[in-house]
Design a protein around this nucleic acid. Sequence first.
DNA 1: AGGCTCTTGCCGCTCAATGGAAGAGAAGGT
DNA 2: ACCTTCTCTTCCATTGAGCGGCAAGAGCCT
Lengths: 288, 288
Amino acid sequence: MLTDGNLLCTRPSAVTDAPADPGRVRGRRPPHGDPVVDRAFALLAAFDAGHRSLSLGELSRRSGIPTSSTLRLAGRLIAWGALERGDDGRFTIGLRLWEVASLAPRGQGLKQVALPFMGDLEEVTRQHVLLAVREGTEALLVERLSAHQAMDVLYRVGGRLPLHSTGVGLVLLAFADSEFQASVLDQPLVHLPERVPVSPAALRRTLAEVRREGVATLRRRAPQPLVSVAAPIFGADDKITAALSVVVPLENAEPRLLGPAVRTAARSISRGLGARRSIGHNGSGASA
Amino acid sequence: MLTDGNLLCTRPSAVTDAPADPGRVRGRRPPHGDPVVDRAFALLAAFDAGHRSLSLGELSRRSGIPTSSTLRLAGRLIAWGALERGDDGRFTIGLRLWEVASLAPRGQGLKQVALPFMGDLEEVTRQHVLLAVREGTEALLVERLSAHQAMDVLYRVGGRLPLHSTGVGLVLLAFADSEFQASVLDQPLVHLPERVPVSPAALRRTLAEVRREGVATLRRRAPQPLVSVAAPIFGADDKITAALSVVVPLENAEPRLLGPAVRTAARSISRGLGARRSIGHNGSGASA
DNA sequence: AGGCTCTTGCCGCTCAATGGAAGAGAAGGT
DNA sequence: ACCTTCTCTTCCATTGAGCGGCAAGAGCCT
């Protein structure tokens, strides 16, 4: 995709039979890849956690859009406020975009309800408290509270986590509709730090247990030994909306005690979102 | 702007001399207001705090784009993830947009550095802690921590605050470059709840004091009696980047004690952002 | 059943968007 | 001082992507 443009573009040599062409080929509109709007958003998608500011060239290369078009589009985005440009000419994501994006019900809206209860959990556990939702086949970290004396930071707000090897991920997967579960289980999965393959049968058993207990407890040795205890949050439609989790170092962990705390907080948040049924153990959808 | 489209559009009667036109006028492309990209973002801008979910009709009306075009554009935004559509057909801001927007240096990036120090302030004061940046002629609330026992919530994360009648606003204004200050002071300003006009001279004196002390202390009686104590945060370029504030109820407030706490926290955040000079009293820019 | 609003698909007409070329500017090497 | 290389910006002839009125379908309240 990205290189198609170059391949299709007219090379200076031998495109037409005419050996010297005084009438320019300028203005020939090559078949472009995407409609305008998609291109505009391709510019936004060129940014990621490792590239929060990009020069024009970088932006053009990473989005696969010719420089001149990139400049023109970026100009529009800047005029609106979706992008900002520093004195050094580098582009960053604009605050205006952050402003409208903060209206996302599954982002800021969810966070607004959850934050006080997350604060409670943080005060009690003095470690990390995570709030994540499912986005595609991954979990997306919506908020993270971390006490000072907490262990090293693991994930970034706005970052993605695998579904099958994190506490929040397991919860989101366990209570998802069975159709989606099947599609995830069909694909080969590995635990990332060590690249250990995941047995679908074992994962299926784990998910059943998560549904039965209403909590997911996940232990990990690498990179740091830790325990994650996670519980589901249900929305007004009584379907799973998010997952709440506490992450503590393995040594001084008492998962038996953390479970009820996390489940209670998750229940309170569910109630705050308008959930009525299935706040207890029995997950909606996904039987057995 | 919004109605121009209608006015310019061909009315069924008497557009051409031909009295009855069997060949349809369909497909006539009227002169539209805005380029595609701007329209796409106009759709996003149609959402606000009071309208987090919109039907197609509402979206069309609020953005001033004809229904069919709205549907087509919204379809693209949904395909990318900038919008989401519920089972009821209503549109909301999409999580994918929230994800990229969380890369905004002045949003999530700033918050990431500030949050731990804000947590400290919250634990000490047990009230509201605000973090805001300047966006245009207003302040934008980037983060808010509120203890449980805190007074009623005032502002919404992602919401806007006036510069001249809030603690964070005064700080952002006081340390802004003098050119911008002048442009704000030139316009008539009022304190909003009571609509009391603001005297430019008094405001100028206040700003000078804020610069001298390195803190803004603002008392308000309505809607609730409260005190806001705010301090500036400087970035790597040693210019003002954000403002930090504690908001406490007026009765049990001790502003003299809060000042140093807020200033210390703000300084720590400045250092975390890479500021070297002007962490102390003397603001950059804006002399006298 | 009739009227109303909201949503969706259709389609021929244009003009907004296009990307290469060339100019401007900065940085670095010989 | 001169050339090379790189990035950024402006310009413009071409054309297909985007345009919106229309009408049919789907609910929903009289």
